[in-house]
Structures are given as structure tokens and as C-alpha cells.
Simulated scan of single mutants.
Amino acid sequence: MSIEIEDWGRTRYDDATQRQLDRVQQRRNGEIADTLIFTEHEPVYTIGRRKDARQNLLLDEAALAERGFDLAETTRGGDITYHGPGQLVGYAILSLDDRKDLHRYLRDIEQVLINALGVLGLAAARREGKTGIWLEDRKIAAIGIAVTRWISYHGFALNVAPDLSHFAGIVPCGIATTDGSVTSLQKELGDLCPPMDEVKAVVAREFETVFGG
């Protein structure tokens, strides 16, 4: 089965969440096929369902307002993270009726990103005991999924060329400074960093390879 690709451009997080939920209902009703959605969010910190995730927010409401950042509670798994321009967010609206295995689904999302980064020239991998995708001790992609009645939503966030200083407002995904740091394609590749459209094309192709068979 082929995967449909939608590109929503720049979105606010809350708006995109509602649009995702609409797509979930459409997928459940058989009105759309399995779909991968690309977007870049306006600056926002999102808090996952992990216990005590909020304590990893380092800014108060006044500081958030001063910076123009949103704060959103979310239904995805995981801790707190940042989304913003220059970061490729992928939302996967898939029927998992044929697998019903969340561990396998998460591994498959990870494999998509590992394969895509390999094509783009970076040797990425999983890291024992940590979530997301890493270049040694540098985290380049976060993953947070949710499933309702075996339809998936949420997905991943790949740092292409975001302002990495924005991660300083949180302990991203609970990563202590002794555990590692956050990186991006731009930081790793410099002038060789591909444009966002090229990254989207590579990720879409690898997603199709893993999930479209």
C-alpha cells in the first residue's frame, strides 16, 4: 500500500493537533489512506505523558510569553521537547490493524530516520536506554507516538536547521548535560546541510520503504 504525503507548511501546534485528530477519524472511517504529514511548527514546548515531564521546563510563563513561545500538553508519549522552524515534524496517520505491535511500530519509525540520515551522510543509531535517534551522544531526532484504536498519530521531529539555543529553555526529553546534547543536520554538516525540501523527499522515500510494503 502506498503512503500519502501531506505538507502542511508552517503551523501552530494546537491547530496541527486538531487537524491530526480529524485525519485519525478519516483514516478510521476509510476515507483516507495511510498518511505521513510534514510540518514545521511555530516555537512551542510540548509536554508528553511521562511522569514529571513538566519539571523539565526551565522557563516560567512570563519568560515564555517574552520569547513568544507556546506551551502545550500533548497526548504523545515521552517527556518535554521543543518544536520550531527548521525542524521537520512528521505525523504518521497509519492503520496498525495488521501488526498491533507498538514496540515494532516504534522500531520502524526509528529505522526510517536512521535510514534517511544515512542517505544524508550521517551515521545515526539508537542509543541504549534513551529515546530518539542519536549521533553518538548527540540527539538529532525525537520520537513521540500515540495510538487510538490502532490508528497512530504524532510521530517524530528531525532537527534539520532549527535554532538550537531554543532547547536551552528545557531539559530536552529529560537529557541531563552529562547524558548528551542536542544537534542538527546543519550543525553536523555545515554548508553541506541539504535544504528542507530534500530532507522531506528522503524521509518520505524511506518511510514508504519501511511502511508501504
Rank of each mutant, 00 (worst) to 15 (best):
K139F: 04
L106N: 08
Q18I: 04
R49I: 00
D70K: 12
T74I: 10
W134N: 06
R10P: 02
A123Q: 12
D108L: 09
C193N: 13
L113G: 03
L96N: 06
G90L: 01
I114R: 09
R99K: 12
G169Y: 11
I37D: 00
G77S: 08
F207S: 03
K139G: 04
L120F: 02
V199G: 11
G84T: 02
V160R: 06
I143F: 06
G169D: 08
P195G: 15
I175D: 01
D179T: 04
I5S: 12
I3T: 11
D22N: 09
E6Q: 14
G68N: 10
L164Y: 05
H83N: 07
L57T: 04
V160E: 05
L122V: 08
F167D: 01
A123I: 02
I32R: 13
N115K: 14
G155W: 00
E61N: 13
G86L: 08
E206N: 05
A201W: 02
A201Q: 12
R49E: 01
I109F: 08
A176Y: 05
G132Y: 01
S95K: 09
V199F: 08
E208A: 15
I175R: 01
F38M: 07
A201N: 05
D52K: 13
A125P: 00
T75W: 02
I133C: 04
K139V: 07
S2Y: 07
E31T: 07
E66M: 07
P195T: 10
G90Q: 01
P85M: 14
D179H: 06
V182G: 03
T39F: 00
E4H: 10
M196D: 13
K130M: 14
R99V: 12
V182M: 15
M196N: 13
I151D: 00
G212W: 02
A92L: 15
I109M: 14
R49Y: 00
F69Y: 14
G144C: 10
F69L: 06
N159K: 05
H83C: 05
I170C: 09
P43V: 08
I80G: 01
R99S: 13
I114Y: 07
L94K: 04
L192Q: 15
P162L: 07
E61T: 13
I151A: 02
G78M: 03
T75H: 08
V160G: 06
G212N: 04
F211V: 08
L158K: 11
C193K: 10
Q26E: 15
Y91E: 08
K130H: 14
L113E: 00
A146M: 01
V182H: 01
R19F: 07
T148R: 15
I3V: 15
D163E: 12
L88I: 03
G90H: 02
G132M: 10
E110R: 11
L94P: 01
T183A: 12
W150H: 05
F69R: 03
I32Y: 14
R27N: 11
I47K: 01
G30W: 07
D52R: 13
D137M: 03
V147H: 01
A123S: 13
S95E: 05
Q55R: 14
G78F: 03
P194R: 14
D98P: 00
D108S: 12
P162H: 10
R28T: 06
E61F: 05
K130E: 10
I80T: 07
L94F: 15
Q55M: 12
